[in-house]
Design a protein around this nucleic acid. Structure first.
Length: 424
RNA sequence: GGAGAGGUGGCUGAGUGGUCGAAAGCGAUCGCCUGCUAAGUGAUUGCUCGGUGAUAAACCGGGCCCCGGGUUCGAAUCCCGGCCUCUCCGCCA
């Protein structure tokens, strides 16, 4: 969320950000009005409390010297009940205000192209050449089904459509990719591995911004637990330091984690959802960074490079897209998407999203650090990027490395993990 | 799931209705002392909201002793609910 002081003092900046994001600005006006109201009521109730504190102290003294304090007590009884009423007014206002604040998106960074939708996104890099085929490449669901490495029908039978059953070398490939990516990030990119819970409480979901806006995209446990299935390891990993004040020496901190990811992806059906293109449960390796504010844009570039390295090692052509203000996600100040080419479906598919949230998530999750010993705590900056998401990676992998006979070549780097050089 | 114990500042830990934002110790910061280190010594040392002010320093006020309610003129302290931790029992991959 944004700093209330910033919204108050520079409302035009916030208004412009909302316009650039193609959002309604009414939310800003609601905030300003309610914020004014809050301070007015707060001022009154605090004056009453100050009086109560002072008189209570006098009462204590009078009682000690055996004086009669009954008229003061009677008066304070009145004051007390007014305070009670006003306190409940304040908390009603504050809860409405926090609903509003939690729904105001981040302000895009100045380097983000301004535009209402994805047509304003900028491709900033192309790497590799899509492979030339001497035959017609087939989509991954055909390859995987005929090789019996993914069983879409039985996956649906067990859980429903969008839930995938990997078999044999398909399962092995899944596991190999996860292990290999984690190994690359930990041994070559300086990340520390963590293995987080997959069920997440409400507070954490608020902290990283999945709630309150995207409730309907999340799986939620029934009964009284009030737990969400994690939609990405970003959530549990970023919230590791919720409500903490880190030392400057603790930064920067690079964490990487595998998690299964659960998303409803409600309303989707049709051509773009076949095979692995849109699933409700998938595997992903995520990278999360906690950094000092002045370093976050450099850290953002190296985060992107860490994700790119995975694709380069697999020799999969990709492009890097800088998202425009209209396509930028709610919490992000700046975001690069990495898309890989999948020849069988002839599409560029998002395989990673690398975002700098600046202090937006840190403020929600209350994650701070001391710039130096004894200094006032400041909010840190958080970043994260997929490193990378498996479904689209597997799609591109299968389709790119397919052979005329329907078998699939295993890239060099994965052979030690899979224990085979070809899936056939 | 059942029974019990407990949750106080960066840490240890005292505090059962008023002068307690909280003793003491440790740690940390700044200074003094010291050939260096250690020891000693003095001072400082929480977070947050609002106001005045320059979105400074400083000052004034509110709130915070796990969280939320309640009792009371007044709550770290009493009562209720919740969360978490530990111990024992049960169940279990």
């Amino acid at each position: 969320m944004l700093d209330a002081k910033l919204i108050r003092s520079e409302p035009d900046k916030v208004r412009q950000a909302l316009i650039n994001r193609n959002n309604d600005t009414k939310i800003l006006d609601d905030f300003l009005e309610l914020d004014e109201q809050r301070r007015k009521v707060l001022w009154e109730v605090e004056a009453l409390k100050a009086e109560r504190n002072a008189v209570s102290e006098e009462i204590a003294k009078m009682k000690k010297s055996k004086q009669d304090a009954s008229s003061e007590i009677a008066r304070m009884r009145e004051v007390g009940s007014r305070i009670k009423q006003m306190d409940s007014d304040v908390s009603a206002i504050e809860s409405r205000l926090s609903d509003i604040t939690f729904n105001i998106p981040n302000i895009p960074h100045s380097s983000v192209p301004v535009g209402a939708d994805e047509s304003f996104n900028e491709t900033v890099k192309n790497w590799g050449q899509p492979r030339e085929f001497g035959f017609e490449p087939v989509p991954h669901w055909e390859l995987a089904t005929s090789l019996d490495i993914i069983d879409f029908e039985r996956g649906s039978k067990i859980a429903g459509s969008g839930f995938i059953l990997y078999k044999g070398l398909g399962a092995r490939l899944e596991r190999s990719l996860l292990n290999w990516m984690l190994d690359v990030h930990t041994s070559e990119h300086g990340y520390r591995e963590v293995f987080p819970p997959f069920l997440i409480n409400r507070r954490s979901m608020l902290g990283t911004g999945q709630l309150p806006k995207f409730d309907e995209d999340m799986y939620h446990t029934d009964k009284d637990d009030d737990l969400y299935l994690d939609p990405t390891a970003e959530v549990p990993v970023t919230n590791i330091y919720m409500d903490e004040i880190l030392d400057e020496a603790d930064l920067p901190q690079y964490l990487t984690a595998y998690s299964a990811c659960f998303r409803r992806e409600a309303g989707s059906a049709g051509k773009d959802t076949r095979g692995l293109l849109r699933v409700h449960q998938f595997n992903k390796v995520e990278m999360v960074k906690f950094v000092a504010p002045h370093t976050s844009y450099d850290e953002h570039e190296s985060l992107l490079a860490n994700a790119e390295a995975i694709l380069q090692k697999l020799n999969l052509p990709y492009r890097v897209v800088l998202l425009s203000t209209g396509d930028l996600s709610f919490c992000a100040a700046k975001c690069y998407d990495i898309e890989i080419y999948a020849p069988g479906v002839d599409q560029w598919l998002e395989v990673s999203s690398c975002s700098n949230f600046e202090d937006f998530q840190a403020r929600r999750a209350n994650i701070r650090y001391r710039p130096e010993p004894g200094a006032k705590p400041e909010f840190i900056h958080t970043l994260n990027g997929s490193g990378v998401a498996l479904p689209t990676l597997v799609v591109a992998r299968l389709e790119t490395y397919q052979q005329p006979d329907g078998s699939i070549v295993v890239p060099e780097v994965l052979r030690p993990y899979i224990g085979a050089d070809r899936i056939s």
